Computed example of a mutant assay.
Amino acid sequence: MGRPYGKGHKRKKTGERYDKEEDELEDKQVVEETTEEETEKFPELEGIPIAPSAQTLKKPGVIFVLEKASLEVAKVGKNYQILNSEEHANFLRRNNKNPADYRPDIVYQALLSILDSPLNKAGCLRAVYVKTDKGVLFEVKPYVRIPRTYKRFAVQLLQKLSIAAVGKREKLLRVIKNPVTQYLPLNSCKIGFSHSSDKLVEMEKYVAGVGGDTDLVFVVGAMSHG
């Protein structure tokens, strides 16, 4: 026996409820389709690195030279790879090489630190030069965007040996001819870093004494020791 309905209570019409749900579903689909159409009309544009202005280039700036970077390529198995101590330790030992000397991650971290530095964001960085322990010289533009992971960086560097600007022919990272001195500004002040130096100075005071009208060239080792 069915339950009797009380006075004043009316049974809901299922047809009206289903019609309302279908209308809401159609409205939702229309919103989603409109959003997709708007996305197609306004695609996300890839960022283009911003080159420094001519006025910025006229001012004295800073150049970094990263020396003895470990970027040696070898055929491991079926593929060519940039050797590193973490992944190729056994391969290096079989070839009578010290795994501790193969640290390409050092130059990668150095590039990230330099390119992300306040110095570069202020427009004071002119260029970065990387010289490998085999004598290969790379030029890195200050407005290049290095991949945020080492593996992506290694793959791009290994496959192309250069990185080009989006939509342009300009090479932001490329192999250039030695020696590096031909690319350095005339009368620039060259400052070398060494763990075995007999004389220690406070860098901030030393640079302040050079003067604000002179280009500074910092030579830094990009190897695991030395």
Rank of each mutant, 00 (worst) to 15 (best):
I163M: 12
V130I: 08
K78H: 15
V175C: 12
R93I: 09
E22R: 15
P43Q: 04
Y183E: 13
K13C: 04
P142Q: 03
I176G: 07
T35G: 13
H225Q: 01
K59M: 01
L71P: 07
M203S: 05
L200H: 11
K28R: 07
Y5Q: 03
S188Q: 06
A100W: 07
L158Y: 08
V30F: 08
R174T: 15
E170V: 15
A164F: 03
I163R: 01
E16K: 12
R152D: 10
P104I: 05
Y108S: 06
R145Y: 08
D101C: 03
A89V: 01
S53F: 02
V140R: 12
I146T: 03
V140H: 06
Y183G: 11
E36S: 15
Y80W: 08
L115I: 03
P147D: 05
K41D: 09
D215I: 13
E202P: 00
N178I: 01
Y129V: 10
N84H: 04
L137I: 09
G6Q: 08
Y206D: 09
E32T: 13
S162T: 11
S70W: 00
K10I: 10
K141M: 14
Y80A: 09
P118S: 05
R152M: 02
R11C: 06
P52N: 14
G123P: 00
P60S: 13
K205L: 02
P4C: 12
H225A: 03
G2L: 04
E38F: 00
L119N: 05
L45P: 00
F218R: 02
V73F: 11
V140I: 15
R11L: 10
T181V: 11
P179C: 04
R103V: 05
